[in-house]
Structures are given as structure tokens and as C-alpha cells.
Amino acid sequence: MKKNNFIYVGLLIMILLAGCAVRKSASNSVPTLVGKKWQLVELNGSVVPATVNGKMPYLELDEESGRYGASGGCNGVGGEYSLKKNNGISFSRGMSTMMACEDMSIENGLRTLFDEADTYKVMEDTMILSKGRDGDALAKFTLVVDQSDKLTGTWELDYIMEPETDFNTLYATRKPTITFDLAKNKVNGNSSCNNFSGTVSIDGHAISFGPLMSTKMACPGNGEQVFFKNIERVTSFDVQDSTLTMIMDDIVVMRWQKK
């Protein structure tokens, strides 16, 4: 009888360990996908701007609730999702807000995506949703990494998008500077002539500047005009070492060096 009890206990331990191993294996695959914010960068083969209607298009999958949240730059879209074997995934639509925005194309494309996508793939910082394991990519996302802390401090401009005039001619006597105060979501600096200040909004790699107020000195040349025109165009940024790059969609419009 005791021998049978030992056998029973041994089998029970083996079953529990096997169960733990299965759960561990599943949980190891999930963190590559869920609990993160993914920025939509391509939809049906077309590049998606960093901001649409002033907002970053994104997708988030919550592991605990089994729900997803997304935006195409207008309304919040959400519902339930399910992960399946062999990188299968399915989405069901839930409630969403009903605002009308100037550009609804990305939002409408996302709704179609959630109806069609049934397979996902994660490669480092890129996630791809497709229809079928061998199907073409319906959408590509990049992992949103918070770089806002790297912006803190003062930067000096060393490139600006202006095909008509050489950079050194535009800023022969003084280069523009910008200083970020992220605790207050504010910026200040000098446009090469007048001082300016205002607000800044950051969401992942997306960035936009609020109304920038400046002093009113008369300035020679058109360097200041070119500066304010380009900083209004900026939709995203990237920081590598001591270089800050400001981008409009996929075009570099300004580059700065840390002072």
C-alpha cells in the first residue's frame, strides 16, 4: 500500500512539473508581443505617417484582460484578441468612439486589418500581421521605445531641410538652439535671432510642438523663417548618442547635436 502511495505521489509530481513546463513555455512566447505599445508604420504596403490627425497610430495587447486597444489617428478602437498555436491570432471588434476626423483612411484600414489578420510574427522590434502563414504582410508595427529622457538638455542645430540656401549661409553668425524641460513639457531656445518658448508633446517617437512664442527683433536673412517653418513640420524624432534627428513622416527635416 505504501509503495502504491509513493508511485501515486511520484506521478502527481511529474504531472505538476509538466504542467509548469507548459505554462512556462507559453509565457515565454507571449512577452514578445503583449504588454507593449506598437506603432503602425505600414498598412497594406503603404507607409503610415508618424502622426495622423496629430496622433500616433498604434496597437496594444493586454495580457491580463485579453483585450486590445488601437488608434488610427482618430477614434479609439478595441475588442478582444486570442493567441493560437503556430503564431495564430484573431481579433473581435468591441465598442469604439465615433468622432469624425479629417483623415479616416488609416482608421478604416485598421478595422479591415482586424477582420482579416490571423497570423503574427515578431522579429526584434518589428511585428507583422498577415493573413495566412505565407501571406503578404497586411500591417507592420515597430516597438515604441520611450526616448523622451534622452531629449533633456540643450541641442544645437547642424542641418535643416532647405534646398534653396546653404546651411552655413542661413546661420552664418549663430546656429539655432533648443532646450527641453520634459518635467514641464516645455521647450525654449533661439531661432538664430529671436528667443522662443512653448510646449512639446511626446508619445513614443512621435513629437509635436505647441504654439511657439518668440521675441520680435528684426532679423537679417531668412534663417529664422526657415527654422520655424521646419519645426512645425516635425512629427517624430530619434536620438542616437549625441545626435537628435527630427523627422516629417520619413524625411529628415532637422538634425541637432547635444551641447
Rank of each mutant, 00 (worst) to 15 (best):
I231S: 01
N222Q: 15
N222D: 15
G223W: 01
M217E: 13
F228Q: 10
I202L: 08
Q225H: 14
K229A: 15
S197H: 10
T199D: 15
I231P: 06
S214A: 11
T199V: 12
K216I: 09
M217A: 11
F196H: 03
F209Y: 11
M217N: 12
V226W: 00
V226S: 02
D203K: 12
M217K: 15
S208E: 07
A206G: 11
G223N: 00
T215W: 02
G210Y: 03
F227E: 01
H205C: 13
N194E: 00
I231R: 04
E232W: 02
H205S: 15
D203Q: 13
F209S: 08
C219V: 03
A218R: 13
A218G: 10
V200R: 07
V234L: 00
N230L: 06
G210H: 08
S236M: 04
S214K: 13
S208M: 09
T199K: 12
N194M: 00
F227P: 05
G221P: 12
F196V: 01
R233H: 05
N230I: 05
S201E: 12
V234T: 02
S201K: 14
S214D: 07
P211D: 11
G198V: 03
T235H: 00
A218H: 13
S214P: 09
S236T: 03
S208F: 04
N194W: 02
E224W: 02
C219K: 05
I207F: 09
G204P: 07
Q225V: 14
C219E: 05
I231W: 03
A206E: 05
T199W: 13
F227Y: 01
M217V: 10
T235D: 04
T215R: 07
G198K: 03
